[in-house]
Simulated assay, not measured.
Amino acid sequence: MFELEHDLAQDIVDRTMAILPYNVNVMDSQGLILGSGEKERINTRHEGAQLVLANGRVVEIDVQTAKCLKGVQPGINLPLLHDQRLIGVLGITGDPDQLRTYAALVRMTAEMLVAQRHQQAEQQWRRQRCDDLLALLLGDGGDSPRLLDEARQMGLKPQLSRIPCLFELEPGQGTDALIAWLQSRYPDSWCFSASESSLLWCRPATLSLDEPRLLEKLDGLGWKVLRMAVGGPADGLAGLRRCYRRVGDLLGYGREMLPHTRVLLLDRYRLPVLLWRYRNDDALEELLTPLRKVLAKDSNGQLLSTLRSWCEHDGQNQACADALGIHRNSLRYRMERITELSGVDPLRLDGMLALYLGLQLLPQA
């Protein structure tokens, strides 16, 4: 239930007195002055307002009547309504005969301000409740029938298949404006501020999107997005929660291993991310041992870049040589050197796989 409060009452007073040459008071539903051009009267009782509240009608007070009432000056006191409910009183000090012509207009303006403030409060509450619901739905207990029912009532459409996208922003940037932009541009989106510098955006799976162009658009609008981790379509809340965890790992992997890559697709990096998640396991250290032997003798990084290209081109000689801009004989010499130093043959499937997995745990310069 909406009630008048001091800030709104004083705002009504200030706006009205900027136009009228009279003092204005705004009283709550108990007749207590919340806002006034005479600051000393704030938080005092207004008997004229109590008459309005008791009768539900306009009360005019002349000089003689004012002498009989405590804390009252001549003027007009009008009921303030919101949704047909009496919520307070608007009082204008002065000669009632001079005030009568525009008192109703002043009351209409005040009631419009009340309605606007109520709408803002409703929108703010709705945004906060949606944020709370999303946090609960993406948590471990998110399949509660009560939560799902409330989510449907709030228009969140929990039944839709969605793709989670996790943005990492430069420190110091707020997420509220970006959330508003995404939700207005892409209907049925879920947006949730995962931390001070990250934002989860769950867009409908039916929405096709060019992620690099989206980042260019956001750059042009002034949002500094460091990187964006994109998952795959997730059916149901359980699937969305799993995919959310995956894109969280993907973002961490990109931050450490691919610092210059802004768009990270889970379909592209699923296996490396899985390895990275268990990066502190002793067994994975064995994958790095052959590569460290290469690095010790690879002062200019030529062999490592060659090996990366070899894996990226699925071990195809000509494609790899063309990408590196070298002759196939030069490529063959480098591969032989890698085999000699690492003790692993990248020309064999098991050797290429072992070296490929190790490369995924080495940060790219």
Rank of each mutant, 00 (worst) to 15 (best):
177 A>T: 12
148 L>S: 08
183 Q>C: 14
181 W>I: 04
172 G>F: 12
168 E>L: 09
183 Q>V: 01
158 P>S: 08
160 L>I: 07
168 E>S: 15
145 P>Q: 10
141 G>S: 00
152 R>Q: 14
166 L>Y: 06
162 R>P: 00
148 L>W: 05
177 A>W: 07
182 L>R: 04
166 L>A: 11
143 D>G: 00
153 Q>M: 05
181 W>T: 05
174 G>E: 12
180 A>C: 06
134 L>Q: 07
186 Y>V: 14
161 S>P: 10
160 L>A: 12
139 G>Q: 01
152 R>C: 12
161 S>G: 15
181 W>H: 11
177 A>Y: 02
134 L>N: 02
182 L>G: 06
159 Q>D: 15
165 C>S: 13
155 G>D: 06
176 D>W: 01
173 Q>H: 08
182 L>K: 02
156 L>R: 02
175 T>R: 10
175 T>F: 04
144 S>W: 04
169 L>F: 11
148 L>D: 05
151 A>M: 08
145 P>I: 11
157 K>D: 12
147 L>K: 07
158 P>G: 10
147 L>V: 08
141 G>P: 03
169 L>K: 03
140 D>S: 15
154 M>A: 03
134 L>W: 00
139 G>E: 01
134 L>I: 13
160 L>H: 13
151 A>V: 02
141 G>F: 00
143 D>F: 05
146 R>I: 15
139 G>L: 02
135 A>V: 09
174 G>R: 10
138 L>H: 11
139 G>A: 13
142 G>D: 05
132 D>Y: 10
185 R>G: 01
166 L>M: 14
182 L>Q: 03
133 L>R: 05
144 S>I: 10
156 L>H: 01
143 D>K: 02
160 L>N: 08
175 T>H: 06
140 D>N: 12
160 L>W: 10
156 L>N: 06
149 D>H: 14
156 L>I: 03
144 S>Q: 14
144 S>M: 10
172 G>E: 15
157 K>W: 11
139 G>T: 04
178 L>G: 02
134 L>C: 07
176 D>Q: 13
157 K>I: 07
165 C>R: 07
157 K>G: 03
156 L>G: 07
142 G>A: 14
143 D>Y: 02
136 L>A: 15
146 R>Y: 10
143 D>H: 11
159 Q>W: 11
171 P>K: 07
175 T>L: 13
176 D>E: 15
159 Q>R: 09
167 F>H: 08
182 L>C: 14
138 L>A: 11
166 L>W: 10
148 L>Y: 04
163 I>P: 03
157 K>Q: 15
163 I>A: 03
186 Y>W: 11
183 Q>L: 08
135 A>Y: 02
138 L>S: 09
180 A>V: 06
140 D>P: 02
172 G>T: 12
151 A>R: 00
